[in-house]
């Protein structure tokens, strides 16, 4: 144990030395923008989104986001695969659990009934307005999943229909890839922004960005919900 500590402290010292030598070369707070100048100056005109981060995430670097959505999909599927249990065993386990789990308190139940639709609405607002205000599909999806988590806490016995969750997940993933392939057909580039850009700073603008963000919002929200569901030990 002791030698392990000494070795690890030596490794950490080497790492720390590396950090000091490299960080001192990157001046903090100075303007070092290079490629991003293009995004800042041309972004609104070329993508129609006033939120430049969104236009970078979904247009200039849209391929990363496709990968990112895929990573989350893998996590949800992988979680399902690792925690998969046969149905028969599952029923037995849940029966014994039922005796132990108490009902949630009245305040929690009433409060979450009241809050749940509002949370969903807020999540939807965040991902629909991703190209106008801070936020977007991932943030909105996380908010939606938190609403579902609240419902799980308030009503531990009820569970969501996993099949519909997985259908929404795959459909929204397909929409994202499909838009990419449509871009390839219409303008020759995968994931290109082939729809009309509209007037910037209005809801119906920025071409494919809102559509993708709505799909991403649904996908992330339902994926995180199914992750919560799996981790609660409900299985299929």
């Amino acid at each position: 144990m002791r030698t392990r500590k000494i070795i690890s402290i030596i490794i950490l010292l080497i790492l720390a030395g590396g950090f000091i030598l490299t960080f001192s070369q990157i001046p903090f707070g100075k303007d070092k923008i290079n490629v991003a100048h293009y995004y800042i100056s041309k972004g609104i005109e070329e993508t129609g989104a006033v939120n430049i981060v969104t236009s970078v995430v979904l247009n200039y670097r849209g391929f990363d986001t496709l990968g990112e959505v895929t990573v989350l999909f893998i996590a949800a599927i992988g979680l399902g695969a690792v925690l998969f249990t046969e149905k028969r065993v599952q029923k037995h386990a849940s029966k014994s659990k039922d005796d132990k789990t108490k009902k949630a308190s009245l305040i929690l139940r009433t409060g979450s009934n009241l809050l749940f639709p509002l949370i969903l609405l807020f999540g939807a607002y965040i991902f629909v307005h991703g190209h106008l205000t801070p936020g977007g599909g991932f943030q909105g999806g996380a908010v939606i999943a938190s609403g579902f988590l609240l419902m799980y806490l308030a009503f531990p016995k009820q569970s969501i229909n996993k099949k519909s969750l997985s259908v929404v997940e795959s459909l929204s993933g397909l929409i994202f890839v499909g838009i990419g392939l449509f871009g390839l057909i219409f303008s020759g580039y995968f994931l290109s922004n082939f729809l009309p850009k509209g007037i910037p700073n209005t809801l119906f603008s920025a071409g494919i960005i809102p559509i993708i963000y709505i799909a991403v919002g649904f996908k992330v929200g339902f994926e995180l919900t199914s992750v919560i569901d799996d981790l609660l030990g409900r299985g299929k």
Binding site: K30, V50, N51, I52
Partner: peptide, 12 residues
């Protein structure tokens, strides 16, 4: 990515 005294890149 931070530059001193500047704001988020959202032109709303």
């Amino acid at each position: 990515g931070y530059v001193k005294g500047r704001t988020a890149p959202i032109f709303s």
